[in-house]
Write a protein that binds this DNA or RNA. Structure first.
Lengths: 156, 156
DNA sequence: GCCTATTAAATTGCACACAATTGAATTGTG
DNA sequence: CACAATTCAATTGTGTGCAATTTAATAGGC
């Protein structure tokens, strides 16, 4: 049978043919591609994502930000502390529900939104695909991500 | 203008509409989805990828593995040392070119290939898409990843 | 053949991710 | 109202990713 074995270019045993690896290596490449542009703003890629969420809406809880980014407090707490140290955000306990911490923007953090506007534009070119292709790919990925999340929940 | 602003569900200012975030959050979901199955083998997801590369071909250099996984020695050296400690791989200096370290499989590492066979099968179901959809998505991602890598190289 | 440039792996330092646990505040139930 | 269950953020510990540097070995140019 000629179509079997790892030597076959279509083999499912070769790492390049793994869908999961395509996702993994693309995600790493995305982070590396954003890095030089974000470094100019003093942000890492996950920090940039957190800022985008806060530019959408100020004064969100750590939980709300975590839900939007699919990150837990173990990741977000130190990340947000670094953004606070950088003078971009504020962190204060909610006086109504003291379990929660509300994250707000400083004037500097709010002002960064304008400076960051060029980032998605430049990155759009780096991705090298049309808006329609990007939209299609995005929705396919989200469908699959939600399937994966469901399979994780289902296993509990 | 009704189509502008972050309130528009199509807005490019909302995190859920970012292609980069779709890739990022899907990659995280992939790692989390693999985790329970790989934990049964005592592997993390990146360790699993390294093992897949070694099951393809034994006695590769750290560099060769890094090229295939797009990882550098800063990531691979400690990862491979953990696999060595776990008794799955061997690490030895190439006697011909002593700069290189050759990574081989132990009997245990080779035997794990069979036990790991069920992983991609089970994960295929978790992804919740057909083989053809997976193939299409994979090739689109790889194209984009290569575009991104090119844009990184070009910026140097 | 000598010396410089390049290459390979390891090391260092920083910032994620995430599982698991902790501690404090709030909710739900009888 | 008491009190167990839940929720939220923080903490702890492990394992990546990656930039930058270091060390050692090889390759290349003259």
């Amino acid at each position: 049978m000629e179509t079997a074995g790892a030597n076959n270019p279509e083999s499912l045993l070769k790492i390049e043919n793994f869908l999961c690896f395509a996702i993994y290596s693309t995600a790493n490449a995305v982070t590396r591609a954003y890095q030089p542009r974000l470094a100019a703003l003093g942000l890492t890629y996950p920090q940039y994502l957190a800022m985008v969420v806060l530019w959408e809406e100020e004064n969100q809880t750590v939980k709300a930000i975590g839900d939007k980014l699919s990150l837990d407090s173990g990741t977000l707490t130190p990340l947000l502390k670094r953004l606070e140290t950088a003078g971009l955000i504020t962190r204060r306990r909610d006086t109504v529900d003291e379990r929660q911490v509300l994250i707000g923007l400083t004037a500097e953090g709010r002002a960064m939104r304008d400076k960051a506007e060029s980032v998605p534009v430049a990155m759009g070119k780096a991705f090298g695909c049309t808006m329609d292709e990007a939209k299609g790919l995005r929705s396919e990925l989200i469908t699959m991500r939600d399937n994966l999340v469901e399979s994780i929940e289902g296993a509990k």
